[in-house]
Amino acid sequence: MNECHYDKRMDFFYNRSNTHTADEWTGTKLVIVLCFGTFFCLFIFVSNSLVIAAVVKNRKFHFPFYYLLANLAAADFFAGIAYVFLMFNTGPVSKTLTVNRWFLRQGLLDTSLTASLTNLLVIAVERHMSIMRMRVHSNLTKKRVTLLILLIWAIAIFMGAVPTLGWNCLCDISTCSSLAPIYSRSYLIFWTVSNLVAFLIMVVVYLRIYMYVKRKTNVLSPHTSGSISRRRTPMKLMKTVMTVLGAFVVCWTPGLVVLLLDGLNCTHCGVQDVKRWFLLLALLNSVMNPIIYSYKDEEMYSTMRRMICCCANGENPERRTSRIPSTVLSRSNDTSTSLNTGSREGVHQCYQIA
């Protein structure tokens, strides 16, 4: 019968796995990493809060796609919290942690990743529902979107708690991994393979939807009345989502591959030398998303800029009633020109949030 080690501190597991990296990041190197991490986390908190506030305040964003986009920003905000907790529990502090505190540290990171990944999957379903029906937005009700968001977080919390619930190596330390000294290698294999497969599925789905939208847009454009902006709306939304997905895959795949190699017990792969750099790359993903939202969606950028302007001037913007989505607002070239002019003037003054 195997002996369980619930009462041991993490130094027992680090020493047994011959992991010395907990002592390597000290002094100047640790200070630099903490400074960069602090700056990125502050940016994550502020920028993603602006995205969520923009969706709440601007009635043009009161559609399922933007609610899910706001939830993705909430997942990035949660990731910032996980990274802050990690910063204060890493380096030489790692070996002094209790088993439960180490589980909490890793569980927060796993939860944030699962929340982002599941949210992207739900957005893929929402985009498929709307695009295949030739609509800009799906007909999901607010109640259904709320239930989907709650389901996303329920799945994320559960997946983050799986090792704590029993899938660990505390009672069989011969199966412990190197990067995560109290995670079993079988769990790391399951975790990384499932995430990589989800990445592949989403990439294939979004590429198919993108090609479908592009083909339909090219076919229908010469025969469709209405503004150019209205006809290009589905493509704009798809480009935004695909850019977010691409950034997510690029930032998270290297770290997942390293975890997979560790799960496969690759002792000559040098996983210890790159793990923290790939973790910083994953952190960068939560920094990039708000930039992508504002760059790809002019209305999102304008709304966020107005809120910053109003906060800087100490004003409270009033909301105007509008039920027209931002991406379908233009009905003629004249209207589009008027909106663009107003957007340029917004650099110099604070407008009401529509």
Rank of each mutant, 00 (worst) to 15 (best):
K214C: 06
Y212W: 15
N100E: 15
V136D: 08
P64S: 06
D11E: 08
V287C: 00
F103L: 13
T21G: 01
L261Y: 11
I228P: 09
R9L: 02
V84G: 04
M304V: 06
L284E: 06
R305G: 05
L151A: 15
T21V: 01
V347Q: 11
R231I: 12
V46P: 09
R208S: 14
A22D: 12
D297V: 11
V56N: 08
L165I: 03
I228V: 12
C4V: 03
H223C: 00
F36R: 02
L237N: 12
I32S: 13
H137Q: 11
I353V: 14
I155M: 05
P254D: 09
Y83I: 09
V55D: 02
F78E: 04
M202I: 14
C41E: 13
V287S: 00
A156R: 04
C41G: 08
R16P: 02
F77P: 04
R16Y: 13
C35L: 13
I292P: 00
S336Q: 10
C310E: 02
L279W: 15
I149S: 01
N48W: 08
L120M: 07
M304T: 03
M132I: 00
C171D: 08
K216L: 15
I149K: 01
M242P: 01
W25T: 15
C269L: 05
K275V: 14
P64F: 10
G166C: 11
T98S: 15
L280S: 02
F77H: 13
K143L: 10
A75G: 08
F36H: 02
T96H: 13
T253A: 14
A53C: 05
A156V: 11
E126K: 02
F63A: 06
D110S: 11
T26K: 12
V219L: 00
